[in-house]
Amino acid sequence: MKAIMKREKPKETRPMSPLRKGIRRDWQLILIGLPAVLCIFIFSYIPMGGVLYAFQDVSLRRTFWSNDWVGFKWFQQFFSSIYAGRVIKNTLILNFWMLLAGTTVEILLALTFNEVRNGKYKKFTQSCTYFPNFISTTVVVGMMINMLNPNTGVLSLLFQNVFGMEKIDLFAEPNAFRPMYVISAIWQGAGWGSIIYLGSINSIDQTLYEAAAIDGAGRLGRIRYITLPGMKSVIVICLIMHIGSMMSMGAGKILLMYSPSTYETADVISTFVYRQGLSSANYGYGAAVDLFNSACNLILLLVANWVAKKVSDVSMF
């Protein structure tokens, strides 16, 4: 009887909202993602307020709001330099070569690894290409200086004695700077960079390869009609992200490699700001140039994303 009564008067429960439902269902995933979200919020979003330094004369003793506002003074200072155009051009050219050559080599490397059938050999070669990534840039540049020294360098002597080339100091040669920078960067980072492409290849359904083989597709055919289309979305996303940082170029390696004789091709925005900022400890100036870079990067990213969406239906957003 009691049971019957209960059935007749069921307890009223409010339907659960989709958000609560989602949290209850996926709380483990949310928890795993939380540190990353917090990290980005704390270290990327909160400091965004610092862009206002670009419009201030920053003083250590004053608070953020009591600094003097100087309008576009630092932007004017940067653009009034006779070298502003040159450093922007150099930054873009160097990034373009890094994008073109770097990405191409990474994709080719991933495709090559995928085609290697001998497991042990594959692992060994993969490891070999990853190792340079763990060598510091300072050491890499040191190795280059030693190997390319016109008098004692192994490579220089090889070029001179075997190929009959003239004795030339490549580190003082403006035209040699970009190739040296890009080639050394590829040597150091291509293996590591290929991991993401290799991952995308591994996610391709293996039955497609089997079907293609039955249909008579050779290796190149399978790469062309299955692997590359399967990697398309990752390639496009990587491309968009890279284009979104076209105006940024780390100063560290260039500072180690360049000299006044190679400023013509090697001086980029970050090295120029480093030289100027170092002499004046001017935080406002640095923030202004960074803000300019970020604004350009954002525009480039939006354009690249829009073009990618139109052309390939793959986009970041």
Binding site: S81, P260, S261, Y263, E264
Partner: peptide
């Protein structure tokens, strides 16, 4: 800043 960059470059 520009003066030094220009001088360094030209002297070399």
């Amino acid at each position: 800043a520009d003066l030094t960059t220009f001088t360094d470059e030209m002297l070399e």
